[in-house]
Nucleic acid binder design. Structure first.
Length: 441
RNA sequence: GUGGUCGUAGCUCAAUAGGUAGAGCACUCGGUUGUGGUCCGAGCGGUUGCGGGUUCAAAUCCCGUCGAUCACCCCA
């Protein structure tokens, strides 16, 4: 291996917060995506892929100009033509944009879409939180009924459970709609106005920028003040109350474990009514413990919420909608920790060993023969020595090696070498595929 | 963006109280002619993340920087 110079050492380092998904992990990512897609397919979700780049203003108009994502977490660029584009920091906005652009309201409603891929946020990386991260998401557009929430949450939790990431628990809350939200906000502000001096620094800032988030602070002093603070749940207007009640009823009847967390808020402007997050339920339910609580530091595997106003922010029409997603990196991380390794049967069953140029030239023919019957053949055509090739075959753990040398080429035969018993038999090239097929069964 | 911890070969780690880097695994080759897993031998591979400072002397101390990690912020 060539030694690295200083410059090269930096060159071959991936950018901060970006990571390679290596072959051994790729299988797991694949597994997560496949499970999520399989389940959502059954529930009627169609796949969609939107661009990684969108107009920068699109996100500003929808996520909220003062949200952290817009203020400091977006990767933006200017094209040579002078357009301002941004790498998508989340998936919902792009999907909604596509819905509006293509007039999907003329399709049977609601429109149910799923998507997957990379998203980008320029923030300080941490375990399970990357600057380029993988997400699987669902959106149900133009549906105001609580059943939509139920379907999204059900699919996400089902996916996690079937992957072996369970047991999980859903943390859920309602933010109300534009009417009741405002009343609550007003009362919340007036409650906090008197106590602002008792708040921590960042909360004093939150008071101005994002008062709902005051409820999320973990500082002792703030937590104390929070206890007496008015709760959104008591401010919900009747329609919102009814809606939320229905959502919870759906969760009950479909056996999804959840707990109500009146402090759960989301920073994005477009959220209304239902918001939720999905966690691994690591705490065993013990007797006497009435409430399920998630450890403060635990990371959400997924989340989402209703965004009834997003469409209106981008167009003239109203399309109530709900969406949710899974943080695939986090799910994979969890599965790895649980040692639920994806055992793939993709390793080849046969290794082709060639000796001499005549046999080497037959290699591709042989591989093609096997390919046609859907068997993959490993080989090491760059190597000449029999020993070296056998060694590789052994490391790959294949059950059979096929050996072809000068003699075999002349006879149009091939040796089947059983890697376990070391038994060998010579068969004709014409029949080798069939014979191997039998043996593998 | 703020604060704590950490950074030695591809990987896992060593290096007595500062004295100028070692091991295992992996990889390559060999132990004679067309046969693997064990064993034996050899080789490859690091100016100790990078840059500067203190010192006769630094992987080891100090500063900066980059990266990882944890907490905050925020979120998937």
């Amino acid at each position: 291996m060539a030694s690295k110079t200083k410059k090269q050492a930096i060159l071959i380092q991936s950018p901060k917060g970006m990571h390679d998904i290596l072959p051994e992990d790729y299988e797991l990512y694949q597994k997560v995506y496949e499970k999520a897609e399989e389940i959502s397919e059954y529930y009627g979700f169609s796949p969609i892929q939107t661009p990684h780049l969108e107009r920068t203003e699109l996100f500003g108009a929808s996520l909220g100009e003062t949200s952290d994502i817009i203020e400091k977490q977006m990767y933006t660029l200017r094209t040579t033509g002078g357009n301002h584009l941004a790498l998508r920091p989340e998936g919902t906005v792009g999907v909604m944009r596509a819905y509006l652009e293509h007039g999907m309201h003329t399709l049977p409603q609601p429109v149910m879409l799923r998507y997957k891929g990379s998203f980008f946020r320029h923030e300080r990386p941490q375990k399970g939180r990357y600057r380029e991260f993988q997400q699987f998401g669902l959106e149900i557009i133009n549906e105001e009924k609580a059943s939509a929430e139920a379907i999204v949450i059900k699919i996400l939790t089902l996916t996690l459970e079937e992957l072996g990431a369970g047991p999980i628990i859903v943390r859920i809350n309602s933010l109300g709609d534009k009417d009741c939200k405002a009343g609550y906000r007003k009362d919340l502000l007036s409650y906090y106005r008197k106590k602002i001096n008792g708040l921590c620094k960042s909360c004093q800032k939150r008071y101005k920028t994002n008062p709902l988030r005051l409820l999320d602070c973990k500082e002792e002093g703030c937590a104390e003040i929070k206890k007496e603070a008015p709760q959104m749940i008591n401010y919900l207007c009747n329609p919102c109350k009814q809606h939320f009640k229905e959502v919870l009823e759906f969760l009950d009847s479909s056996g999804i474990p959840y707990f109500l967390d009146t402090y759960l808020v989301r920073g994005l402007d477009y959220y209304s009514r239902t918001v939720f997050e999905i966690f691994k339920d690591s705490k065993k339910k013990q007797e006497g413990e009435a409430e399920n609580e998630v450890e403060e530091t635990q990371i959400a595997l997924g989340g989402g919420g209703r965004y009834d106003y997003l469409a209106k922010m981008l167009s003239r029409k109203d399309f109530p909608a709900i969406g949710g997603g899974l943080g695939v990196d986090r799910v994979v991380q969890l599965l790895k920790e649980k040692d639920a390794k994806a055992k793939t049967n993709k390793t080849p069953k046969v290794f082709f060993v060639q000796l001499g140029s005549a046999a080497k030239h037959k290699s591709l023919d042989i591989m093609e023969k096997f390919r046609k019957t859907h068997l993959s053949v490993a080989q090491s055509m760059g190597k000449d020595s029999l020993k070296g090739q056998m060694k590789i075959a052994d490391k790959l753990n294949v059950p059979y090696a096929l050996i072809m040398g000068q003699k075999e080429v002349m006879e149009e035969s091939i040796i089947i070498h059983d890697m376990n018993s070391r038994a060998q038999e010579t068969v004709s090239v014409d029949k080798v595929v069939e014979i191997i097929k039998q043996k593998i069964k």
